[in-house]
């Protein structure tokens, strides 16, 4: 469905993505995790042809067999919403305060599917009902400020589903919501993906949500894809030190943990300009070797995927 090969995104201050290769099969649910600033959103936007003007892309992107490498805005536009759709982190600001809910969801139906307003309205109502929005009929006539965060995220999901895309990219769709609503939205995305055979790229830094929602996992750090594999496998048996740190640092309702301090990955994500030339994690890594900072590790095979770490290099 989606195939990315050697994708890099160069910003004036540094590389937001470096040589990322990844593919997502039809109907597959992929989790994309990593600390903030690791390039998850940039990768999501690249798959929509929507990286900021400042970013120079290189590498290949293919969507549903169609090569989109270097495609123009005009070439991307008809694919958005139809082949690949995206929802964003902040449901409070992702809806135009001056446009009624109904109009928002009807827009792509009229634009892409050339529906008449009557049909578009009926379809929008179905979509809103499908996302579990209560009283969709009344909400169609309301403005965004009249809805809660969870309700707005459902509206945005309905909008993204309007043209029945093959892939839905959900960029931290639950980060701005409280825990219980977040859980429901996560389950909704999984159900929609199953029902529709729609691939889902679920971007999150909540490992529990990713474990619940996805089959395959990709871990990003500093613009690199550091580890991929089956979600359960990677979480149970992480091979990359960064993944191990990420899993150790996640909050757990574990009684034994309550009095202890939560382990954290030492240091903070360096800014783009300060990333090491070799492994991006060098400098924060507990198991660092002398060559890590200078030489980029190759991706080595793991049980269900790959991890890019010098420690995994087979002994000669």
């Amino acid at each position: 469905m989606i195939r990315v090969e050697g994708l890099s995104a160069a910003l004036p201050q540094g590389q937001a993505l470096r040589d990322v290769s990844l593919s997502v099969a039809r109907g597959e649910r992929l989790g994309l995790v990593g600390e903030s600033g690791s390039g998850k959103s940039m990768l999501g936007l690249a798959l929509m042809g929507m990286v900021p003007d400042a970013a120079q892309l290189s590498g290949r992107i293919a969507l549903d067999g169609q090569d989109m490498t270097g495609a123009t805005e005009a070439a991307w536009q008809p694919l958005r919403a139809r082949k690949v759709a995206m929802i964003f982190q902040e449901p409070m600001t992702a809806l135009d305060p001056l446009v009624r809910i109904g109009e928002t969801v009807m827009e792509p139906l009229i634009l892409h599917l050339k529906m008449r307003r009557r049909d578009a309205r009926a379809r929008a109502l179905d979509l809103l009902a499908e996302t579990g929005l209560t009283e969709p009929e009344a909400k169609m006539r309301q403005y965004p400020h009249q809805l809660s965060g969870g309700q707005r995220q459902r509206v945005l999901i309905a909008l993204a589903l309007a043209c029945d895309p093959g892939v839905l990219i959900a960029d931290e769709p639950t980060t701005a919501l409280d825990a219980q609503i977040a859980l429901r939205i996560t389950d909704l995305l999984v159900r929609l993906s199953r029902d529709r055979g729609m691939a889902l790229i679920f971007i999150s830094h909540d490992l529990a949500a990713v474990a619940r929602a996805t089959e395959r996992l990709a871990v990003m750090y500093g613009g690199d894809l550091v580890e991929t594999g089956a979600t359960a496998e990677v979480l149970a048996n992480p091979r990359h030190p960064y993944t191990q740190g990420l899993i150790a640092a996640r909050p757990r309702p574990d009684p034994a943990m309550i009095r202890k301090r939560l382990p954290v990955i030492p240091g903070t994500v360096p800014t783009l300009g300060d990333l090491p030339r070799g492994c991006r994690f060098a400098g924060r890594c507990a198991a660092e070797l002398p060559r890590c900072a200078g030489t980029r590790p190759a991706p080595w095979p793991t049980a269900s995927g790959q991890a890019a770490c010098h420690l995994l290099e087979p002994a000669p």
Binding site: M48, I87, F88, T93, A94, L95, D96, A162
Partner: peptide
């Protein structure tokens, strides 16, 4: 919401 609009094609 402009980003969302662009994402909607």
């Amino acid at each position: 919401f402009v980003l969302a609009g662009r994402a909607a094609g």
